[in-house]
């Protein structure tokens, strides 16, 4: 079957709006540095530290003033009490800008323990310390609550016995996605799922068959709206035996990765060549070797439905 009409391509996808869910989890070892490292380390001691920069006193302590660039001339210990300058409440709770007594820049943190409607601009608040501090989080200070009996004092310069800065904070960033296949990938994956049929799109100018199919040829920037069937057999153009282990790896090394040009396609597909010993792969899966798709029992509608490629031994 050949389609030359783009509107028909679009229609076929509208019936099958496929998404690929994806999650990226990226681990980090974050370095808070001197001022932030000491600021966080001192929270378990229930001490709130600011930094002095000329006339400015900033809480949380900073190495440099964000306003003037002035380096800190030293730490100051401040009373863990202050006044609310602004606040906002959402489904997760309330955040507020608290101007700690004796400082010049407000401190943004959670506001907790207030009756609805009791919080106002100007409300006096005091620190609420975590009951289960971890020693490496700003949440060792749980937030600020009603002032109660808490007293205040003038900022104390150069406090003694400061903790060593936290050197490292482990953090994992997790990002969730829902990627749309679109008309072209959607048609390919529908065919793979239901009939083990692989289709590319043919460039109207250079006549190359692009796999995965796309609307515009990468090289010519010409439309590629014609479908072309591609076989599940092909030729290796390059291969590599992977020995290293890395994060997110789906297969235990060693395994063989190859760039394969499927019969009828003009572009390379990267996939795994299975059922071949790593040592033997160096010659057997070399450029020019012929391979055939081994389809899995799963019908997920992705190129993962190809378990791997196997060598077609002469």
């Amino acid at each position: 079957m050949t389609l030359t009409d783009t509107t028909e391509v679009a229609r076929s996808s509208a019936e099958n709006m496929h998404y690929m869910p994806a999650q990226l989890t990226i681990p980090y070892t974050l370095t808070p540095g001197q001022a932030t490292g000491i600021f966080i380390a001192e929270l378990v001691n229930k001490r709130l530290l600011g930094s002095r920069h000329g006339d400015e006193i900033i809480v949380p302590a900073q190495d440099f003033s964000g306003s003037t660039g002035e380096p800190a001339s030293g730490f100051v210990e401040v009373a863990p009490v202050g006044e609310v300058q602004a606040f906002t409440t959402n489904a997760k709770g309330t955040l507020g800008l608290v101007l700690i007594d004796g400082t010049t820049t407000p401190f943004l943190h959670k506001l907790v323990g207030f009756e609805p409607g009791s919080l106002e601009i100007g409300t006096r608040v005091a620190a609420i310390w975590s009951e289960s501090p971890t020693g490496n989080s700003v949440l060792d200070l749980a937030g600020f609550g009603p002032i109660g009996e808490a007293g205040t004092f003038e900022p104390k310069s150069d406090p003694e016995g400061l903790a060593e800065p936290i050197e490292q904070i482990d953090y994992t960033m997790t990002l969730d996605f829902k990627h749309a296949y679109g008309a072209y990938y959607g048609t390919l994956f529908d065919g793979v799922e239901t009939g083990r049929r692989i289709r590319g799109s043919k460039c109207s100018k250079c006549r190359r068959v692009l796999l995965p199919p796309r609307a515009v040829c990468d090289s010519c920037f010409a439309p590629a709206t014609e479908w072309a069937d591609v076989a599940d057999t092909g030729t290796i153009q390059a291969s590599s035996v992977v020995h290293i282990e890395f994060l997110g790896q789906r297969k235990q090394p060693p395994y063989v990765y190859a760039e394969i040009v499927l019969d009828g396609a003009s572009t390379r597909l990267i996939h795994i060549v299975g059922d071949v010993d790593a040592e033997r792969a160096k010659t057997a899966a070399a450029p020019g070797a012929r391979v055939r798709a081994v389809w899995s029992d799963q019908h997920t509608g992705s190129l993962g439905d190809i378990e791997h490629f196997e060598l077609i031994e002469e």
């Binding site: 966080i40 949380p60 959402n90 997760k92 709770g93 955040l95 943004l108 700003v138 904070i169």
Partner: peptide
């Protein structure tokens, strides 16, 4: 990520 992200600050707040 040390003092702003953990408290739940987002673009709307």
């Amino acid at each position: 990520p040390f003092t702003q992200r953990p408290i739940g600050l987002d673009h709307e707040s």
